[in-house]
């Protein structure tokens, strides 16, 4: 395949990964930013979202679109509910102590993973996409001096599916609305106040404990939402939480823990470079470079690209 179409395909594939990664990593970053909790179980909330999506779409079962919309609503709510319960029952009891919460969330990780294995089973199960058609991608042609578009023919002509484009669009929409909530609404103001200074916020009458529960639920809900978007492309599997957790950590370390802008930029960087390097070189090299970038950031800019230096 020629360089141009090859690059376009790689970019689009990378963008799908980046979109989903941005949502997942945002949840992790939010929880750390506001609560100072490193949620090791974050990937399992992602897995939970995919598993619930399968249950909902199977239970509704009439038209794939109906099941998908149902999953979009139910899965984040279930994940958020379980996260809030975990916050009240576990994290609050250990006083959000940084070391204790890491160990506690590792425990939650195993409980959720094994519960999924027992309740959902070890198989990978597919969820049908609500719509899916193959869209051919036009290429730019400069051979006549003026730019014109043409569609290559034959097999393997660059194409993408409508559902993958939808994933990119939906993730962008969610990110924008999330940013609006955080910057323009009262709930967002309260969350930002809690992030800035917990004690002062409490002194001004902000129910910090309830904000914590809300934020932990929101973080889990974002991960679940990302999984619902990706599950028609991949499949629900009880071990699927490992990769997103690792990549989310990479993203928030590069972007700066607690910084939304940094998270989105780093997700794009990691997602796109993974897509492009995988296509042109090898997927292993993409992972090596991402990890190398993490090491570089930790050495030269430990607060991350957009993180604030600790005072």
């Amino acid at each position: 395949m020629d360089f141009g179409p090859h690059l376009m395909l790689a970019t689009l594939e990378g963008a799908v990964g980046a979109a989903v990664l941005a949502l997942t990593a945002l949840g992790l970053s939010l929880v750390f930013g506001v609560m100072r909790v490193v949620n090791v179980a974050h990937g399992e909330f992602y897995m939970l979202g995919a598993v619930v999506a399968w249950f909902v779409s199977t239970a509704i079962g009439t038209h794939p679109a109906l099941g998908f919309v149902g999953a979009l609503i139910v899965a984040p709510l279930v994940a958020a509910g379980i996260a809030i319960a975990a916050d009240r029952l576990v994290l609050k009891r250990v006083d959000y102590d940084p070391e204790a919460t890491i160990v506690a969330t590792i425990g939650i990780l195993y409980i959720m993973q094994q519960a999924a294995l027992m309740g959902f089973g070890p198989e990978a199960r597919p969820v049908t996409e609500p719509f899916n058609s193959r869209i051919m991608l036009p290429l730019l042609d400069w051979s006549k001096g003026l730019p014109s578009f043409y569609y290559p023919t034959g097999w393997g002509a660059p194409s993408i599916t409508s559902y993958k484009l939808f994933v990119i669009a939906a993730a962008t929409a969610i990110l924008i609305s999330f940013w609006l909530i955080l910057s323009r609404t009262k709930v967002g103001l309260i969350m930002r106040a809690t992030q800035l200074d917990k004690e002062t916020a409490q002194a001004f009458g902000i129910p910090v404990n309830r904000v914590y529960s809300l934020v932990f639920g929101l973080g889990a809900g974002l991960a679940a939402l990302a999984a619902v978007l990706i599950v028609p492309i991949q499949q629900a599997h009880y071990l699927m939480g490992g990769d997103p957790l690792l990549l989310s950590f990479i993203v928030v370390i590069i972007g700066g823990l607690g910084s939304i802008r940094g998270t989105v930029v780093a997700a794009l960087l990691i997602g796109l470079s993974d897509g492009i390097i995988s296509v042109f070189f090898s997927p292993t090299l993409a992972k090596i470079l991402a990890t190398l970038l993490v090491a570089m950031v930790l050495v030269f800019r430990p607060q991350g690209l957009y993180g604030k230096k600790p005072a």
């Binding site: 395949m1 179409p5 090859h6 395909l9 790689a10 594939e13 990378g14 799908v16 990964g17 198989e123 990978a124 034959g154 393997g156 492309i233 991949q234 499949q235 599997h237 071990l239 699927m240 990769d243 897509g275 995988s278 296509v279 997927p283």
Partner: peptide, 25 residues
């Protein structure tokens, strides 16, 4: 878990694609 990025490596003059894969994906 995602495979499309590998397929552009298939040369145009390929007459037969031989595939074998395992695992949940």
């Amino acid at each position: 878990t995602s495979f499309t990025k590998y397929f552009p490596q298939i040369p145009r003059e390929t007459e037969v694609l031989y595939h074998v894969m395992v695992g949940p994906g």
